[in-house]
Design a protein around this nucleic acid. Structure first.
Length: 481
DNA sequence: ATGTTC
């Protein structure tokens, strides 16, 4: 496929390259990252460019790789009247996202008790496939929770009131539609609040070394104010509930598409007109699943605080453990952008892509109004993660979006062939990183060598000006699903 | 990602 470099770190595949493309497909990457991208990324992002009502261009972030229907790292904006909503553009794990906590502790405070802390975190935060949480709700109460999101959690004793203003959307998106949820989705979801899940979902204890602070003044505004400070990063989503919502609507959409006369290059791109009854029902169900993920991260935050309090023998507030931010990277949202000189409301799909709004916007927390929206980028458990801030440049280039992680380069199967989980665990322990995992096989799949170099990926978004580096975190402890 | 095949 002809891929034209139209600017530094910007590649475009013109509509002439595939029948049915309404707009160009754009991949944001360095020459080296582009060369390393699988053929699936090119095929999938050009398929996305064929979807009805897509506006301007289909985008793929530098951490992009092959996914279900859309590439992971895909961003696409649709006209609300003529466009579609597609579960493949959001991901099975609806509102998979990141939360970051700061602490008053330093590495020196934590090292002597790190093993006890990781053990306690592993006990307090259930992880693994199919695991149930400490919060078990009946159906009606679970429906309340997915309508109320993180706010419901705080009202029921999980977390602090002041957490809420530091979450994207305050941790609760309006418009959850209980009637759009299947029995099976509710049954799967109701006992999973406060659980980590599996795969690349994790909870990590990290250190901010002074040489990893790129902008001291912005770091301070984000709560990072001392040398070798400890942070806690969390990556998880909506568990079986969101997965079931995705499964339910893929099936509904596959038959609805025939009625609406929509054809796609790929069955995995099942979609429905956004304004159709089916499209609106999925949107209402997706909002409920997104809220369940905010609630999940809120309950886990409560459990993290309890684990720290157990180990340090003081009230969790004395240790800090304040929320820095919480942001989704698998979601569709209605946002306004200027397109061809006209302000338009669009349905922005982000699938493995993070919102990255600039300063002075009303939809980011007051305290970050002068620095921009925090963007939390999780790396592999061996190599470190980043805190960035967003920029107004995303309004022009990326429908308010940036990357979400480092991106895999090796399949799970290939990673398992190269190393055993227990070997990796010992190896990491020798390097001062304690890992607790529900599955040794799962651990091997997450080895650092299976991921792209996170610095290389983050440098692309910084050069493009869509996000700016503030801090790099290095892991010292990890709880893995 | 996922009660990893209703």
């Amino acid at each position: 496929m002809r891929t034209v470099k139209i600017a530094p770190d910007v590649f475009e595949i013109p509509p002439s390259e595939k029948k049915g493309m309404h707009v160009p497909a754009r991949i944001l990457a360095s020459d080296a990252l582009l060369a390393g991208m699988d053929e699936g990324v090119f095929r999938q992002i050009t398929n996305v460019a064929c979807l009805p009502g897509i506006v301007e261009h289909a985008l793929c972030m530098p951490d992009g790789h092959w996914g279900y229907g859309f590439p992971i790292g895909g961003v696409a904006a649709f006209d609300l009247d003529r466009g579609v909503i597609s579960p493949g553009g959001i991901g099975f794990d609806i509102n998979c996202g990141m939360r970051l906590l700061r602490t008053n502790l330093t590495e020196q405070d934590v090292r002597p008790r790190l093993d006890a802390l990781m053990t306690r975190l592993f006990e307090r935060v259930p992880s693994g496939v199919g695991i149930k949480g400490f919060v078990r709700l009946d159906r009606d109460r679970f429906v309340e929770a997915v309508c109320g999101g993180a706010r419901w959690c705080v009202d029921h004793g999980y977390g602090r009131l002041e957490d809420l203003e530091l979450l994207e959307e305050g941790g609760c998106i309006p418009g959850a539609e209980p009637s759009a949820l299947s029995d099976r989705a509710l049954t799967r979801g109701k006992e999973q609040l406060g659980t980590l899940g599996s795969g690349n979902h994790y909870l990590e204890v990290q250190v901010v070394h002074p040489h990893n602070v790129y902008d001291e003044s912005t770091a301070r505004k984000l709560g990072f104010d001392r040398d070798h400070q400890i942070a806690v990063m969390l990556h998880c989503g909506s568990r079986g509930f969101g997965h079931q919502v995705g499964t339910d609507y893929l099936k509904i959409f596959q038959s609805a598409m025939k009625r609406y006369g929509i054809e796609t290059h790929d069955r995995e791109l099942a979609c429905a007109p956004f304004k159709s009854p089916e499209g609106q029902q999925y949107f209402g169900a997706m909002v409920a699943a997104a809220n369940s993920a905010f609630a999940n991260r809120q309950v886990i935050t409560h459990q993290i605080r309890a684990a720290f309090a157990d180990v340090f023998g003081v009230d969790d507030r004395e240790l800090g453990l304040e929320v820095v931010y919480d942001v989704a990277h698998n979601i569709a949202k209605i946002e306004e952008y200027e397109v061809e000189g006209r302000r338009r409301k669009l349905l922005v799909h982000r699938k493995g892509a993070t919102r990255s709004f600039g300063p002075a916007r009303s939809d980011i927390p007051d305290r970050y109004r002068d620095i921009g929206q925090p963007v939390i980028v999780g790396g592999s458990m061996e190599t470190g993660s980043f805190l960035l801030v967003g920029s107004d440049e995303t309004k022009i280039q990326t429908f308010g979006s940036t990357l979400h992680g480092s991106g895999r380069t090796m399949s799970r199967v290939a990673a398992k062939k190269r190393i055993r989980g227990d070997e990796l665990q010992r190896d990491m322990a020798r390097r001062g990183i304690i890992v607790k995992s529900a599955s040794m096989r799962g651990l091997a799949e997450e080895a650092g060598f299976a991921y792209k170099n996170i610095s290389e990926v983050v440098d692309v978004v910084e050069r493009l000006g869509i996000s700016r580096k503030v801090i790099r975190f290095e892991p010292i402890g990890n709880v893995k699903g």
